[in-house]
Write a protein that binds this DNA or RNA. Structure first.
Lengths: 219, 219
DNA sequence: GTGTTTCTCGGGGTTTCCCCCTATTTGCGG
DNA sequence: CCGCAAATAGGGGGAAACCCCGAGAAACAC
């Protein structure tokens, strides 16, 4: 592991801010500059820039967005770790999903803060600078709820479920679907219900959006 | 039209910053505060807060995000105009789509700037404060490809109907929509029914597909 | 003025959805 | 053979959607 360029004891911790939106970098910079113990030493607009900056300015901490052009966040974390970067990584993103968070932590990130909870950016920086981890409340909650016993819900849809979802997304009622697939309404409801459980959808509209997003139906 | 609270000639133009992410508000605030002619007089985290703030502090300009909880951006523009707000509206958003831009301009916004072109925020503010319109390059390009009138024929639905359809397509129930728009469930049902009659949809899913196809919601 | 549209809200009813159970048959793999 | 997952089917009940009907207020056009 390579040595950081700031004094380990009392000096200000150096921070690299990575986000493809300049306005967000500006906001993060403003927040960090209001904290005495931290100093912004660089900015980057995508993953590759972040890696270049990390190797040249050697920050203590990298505040990293996930959605970025050219090289996206998780991949950036992986690449940084592959290059033995000494920087602690704080993911700061829109995504409030446990999936992304688990990926980030799994890749080696120390903290995960949602952008709509940016008042947790300071505490997260403090935690990370002390080598601890930090998850913002929304993610923490999502994780504790999901990662319990939801192995079942995480699996992909079965063929039949996908078939039913497709017909739902095309505007068919359960009755219509049952007639089309030559099965009973109850069976249709069962498939529909398990698909909704698996996808997290709680209405026909949500299921339709899922279907469109995942290419089950075309527009 | 109501009178603004700043001198028309030389005084600083007052700005309300609306975004559900505090860090973005911070960034926008920092940018605006570096400009002499403008002053941030308030912040809001969603559409309803924006409307409340707009009616209490009466800003000259509102910098408005589109993706927000409770009441989303276009609907906020519609609601502000419905209440005869005198504020000029500058939409500042992630969405680089011509659909959304046309909707925003159609609803009464003066400017449309993408967040990844935040260096255009200053020029846009200048333009808006002079009563002119401003589109950031990415959107301008997308728009020039399609004729405005052509896309403008989506007039089948009324503003209120489109609002309801958008929320339906986002998976909301009638009860939820009624709460969000502060109207009764019966009224929600009426709008929903007339939208379904106009579009030929006969279910929530069909309405959702219509909404996605016609750019009323993004994926 | 009158008429039209839009937005608002209700009554009363039918249908569908959504969710909680259980259960059987089939088939695949340890 | 046994265990598990998938597909099939149902009972029951509450919630929500959907479909008729009417109707008042406000805005706007003619």
């Amino acid at each position: 592991m390579l040595q950081s360029n700031s004094a380990p004891g009392g000096g200000a911790r150096t921070v690299l801010v990575v986000d493809d939106h300049p306005v967000v970098r500006k906001g993060v910079r403003t927040i960090i500059e209001s904290m005495e113990r931290f100093e912004v030493v660089g900015e980057a607009g995508d993953g590759w820039e972040a890696i270049e900056q990390a190797e040249s300015v050697r920050p203590d901490i990298i505040v990293l967005d996930l959605a970025m052009p050219r090289l996206e966040g998780i991949d950036t974390v992986v690449e940084l770790k592959r290059r033995d970067s000494s920087a602690e990584i704080l993911v700061f993103t829109l995504h409030q999903s446990d999936h992304r968070c688990l990926q980030a932590i799994g890749a080696g990130a120390r903290a995960y803060v949602c952008k709509n909870e940016s008042d947790h950016l300071g505490p997260a920086l403090e935690a990370v600078s002390r080598g601890r981890t930090y998850l913002s409340p929304a993610v923490n909650e999502a994780l504790s709820l999901q990662s319990k016993e939801e192995a079942w819900d995480r699996r992909a849809l079965t063929d039949r479920e996908r078939q039913v979802v497709r017909l739902v997304a095309q505007g068919h009622s359960n009755k219509s679907i049952a007639r089309l697939l030559k099965i009973s309404i109850k069976t249709t409801e069962t498939h529909r219900a398990s698909a909704m459980r698996k996808t997290g959808a709680n209405s026909a509209s949500a299921l339709t959006i899922y279907a469109v997003r995942n290419g089950i139906v075309d527009l």
